[in-house]
């Protein structure tokens, strides 16, 4: 009887200690099927033209208790660029733009994450396009959590930020084709 009570107390203490400890960082893998990387560029100072990359992969480390320990690494297949015009897509793959034969991947590696509010973190990292690396900072909003039909834990994020393509050595067609590129990234990751 006394021994049983001792076990119950020990179990309760262990539960309290585990609850009080910060949750461990969780590593999620980006789901390319439910992740969208969209960009827009102004054409001849008139309308915005939208495009996307169809192949996005990478990992997201989420530590809700300590966001500074969170991170995001993204790899984009530059050849997967899609603008609903095959000739334009081939042109975007050429040395005029992404030069995908020489630079087949676009990468983002976070270097710092800090909490802004309950659902938002500010992520700073290095974006590499066409072999040129530049720091970017963006607010990333957690859009939700869920379960996949297979029972995996899902987490979703979205961010929008602007870059100048000339900063990455992509100067073709300036200024007719805009220098400012808006990037919209919506990530779903699973574990």
């Amino acid at each position: 009887m006394f021994a049983r009570a001792k076990h119950l107390v020990a179990g309760a203490v262990a539960a309290v200690v585990l609850w009080a400890l910060p949750a461990a960082a969780q590593t999620y893998t980006i789901d390319p099927v439910h992740t969208s990387l969209v960009f827009r560029v102004k054409h001849m100072n008139a309308a915005y033209v939208y495009g996307m990359f169809r192949q996005v992969s990478g990992t997201v480390v989420v530590d809700e208790a300590n966001p500074a320990r969170s991170s995001i690494n993204i790899e984009v297949d530059a050849n997967s660029v899609f603008t609903a015009n095959e000739q334009r897509d081939n042109h975007l793959r050429s040395p005029d733009f992404f030069n995908t034969r020489q630079f087949p991947t676009i990468t983002f590696r976070s270097t710092q994450v800090r909490r802004v509010n309950a659902n938002t973190v500010q992520v700073t990292g290095n974006l590499t396009i066409r072999g040129v690396t530049r720091p970017v900072t963006a607010n990333v909003v957690m859009t939700g959590k869920g379960k996949s039909p297979q029972g995996k834990d899902l987490v979703g994020f979205e961010t929008t930020f602007d870059i100048k393509r000339s900063d990455f050595g992509i100067r073709y067609g300036l200024p007719g084709l805009g220098d400012d590129v808006r990037v919209i990234l919506s990530v779903e990751a699973a574990k």
């Binding site: 030069n99 020489q102 066409r130 072999g131 040129v132 000339s166 050595g169 100067r171 073709y172």
Partner: peptide, 14 residues
Amino acid sequence: IVGLPLSFPPSDST
């Protein structure tokens, strides 16, 4: 047309 090289040696073919 394409701007000055961003680095030396250039990382880009053009």
